[in-house]
Write a protein that binds this DNA or RNA. Structure first.
Lengths: 181, 181
DNA sequence: GAGGCCATGTAAACTGTTACATGATTTG
DNA sequence: CAAATCATGTAACAGTTTACATGGCCTC
């Protein structure tokens, strides 16, 4: 995950590891946190693999390393981006991919969103089936909180579907929040 | 995380590793997946630490190992359960903890839910501030999808708050879903 | 000149996955 | 009797965090 995030951040301008950390913090810190301990080794690895170029630059008494995505880096980034958003991944890693959807062609993006919506609809059906099973049980109150996580899940999947529709129609984002009754 | 889940599952009846896997699948597979490769070593480790007891039993030609939480195991499980639900954790691991909330005393549970709600409210304020900043920028359409993740986040936090209120009032779970306009 | 930010990195530990390996029991 | 499920485990690898270590630059 982190490797793709790094390439995605260094797609255009050459950036230092420290810059990339900043970009991650300002852009996706809500759902993804990167530590230097994982960032710097990843930069080294990606450069060795040929997905990033590194150019050193002296600034005063300080040696900085600037990284930028190579053509190959862009290719594997695009491949990753075009891979379906997997409902088995955590909410957070799914959001990471959608964060980069501006980079996608509108055709691929629409395909992705349609597929994600469909997967959510199918998953919702599965959860609703589960709900029906539990609903028939007696002494439901003994596991009210256990059950509550299922209902939370259903609610979130419903939200996902609404969100997908919203994004496909390119509706104003403000309309997605604050529509409480 | 897995260690607490295991203890939480083996709180009452003695269970085999295989049983625990089943419990995890039937109860929390929606947001947590455990593999045997992590489960069995964890059982061994927890037994060594004294949080589980293991009793072997011959059944036909098969040697089964039954695990059950010790008093010490129950204590550290309760400690973990009483620790605040951390918004920095993934959605999924937060749900794991709430799944076990039936085990909590109603006082601790209410404290937990109140605190979680408050943290969500504060977090919502932070995100709304962020939203305001981005809203003032020109060419917002160039990062429509980047921004969409922020709006998704706000929406989910709003849902979290609704959910917390719902659970505190012990309202019927069915009322939490299907309240679309 | 002290404190905070800029900048790069390493080492140990932790947590987990995937694939492999083995064999018993049950059910169609 | 074959296939599915029950049952337990190991080994290699992957990805990450936390803590440590070092030093330059900037601003009050």
């Amino acid at each position: 995950m982190l490797e793709y995030i790094i390439i995605g951040m260094a797609l255009n301008d050459p950036l230092t590891g420290y810059d990339i950390k900043k970009y991650i913090e300002n852009g996706i810190s809500v759902f993804y946190k990167a530590s230097f301990g994982s960032l710097y080794p990843a930069l080294k690895k990606l450069t060795e693999k040929g997905y990033l170029t590194m150019t050193e630059q002296q600034q005063g008494n300080r040696q900085k390393k600037f990284y930028q995505a190579t053509e190959e880096g862009k290719i594997i980034f695009d491949e990753w981006l075009a891979l379906p958003v997997d409902l088995n991944d955590t909410t957070e890693s799914r959001l990471v991919k959608i964060y980069f959807f501006d980079n996608l062609s509108s055709e691929t993006r629409d395909r992705q969103l349609r597929e994600y919506e469909l997967n959510n609809v199918n998953y919702l059906r599965k959860l609703e089936l589960l709900e029906k099973q539990f609903d028939e049980m007696p002494n439901k109150d003994d596991f009210y909180f256990k059950l509550s996580t299922l209902y939370y899940g259903i609610r979130i999947i419903q939200e996902n579907i609404e969100w997908c529709k919203h994004l496909q129609e390119h509706k104003p984002l403000k309309d997605f929040i604050g529509r409480k009754i």
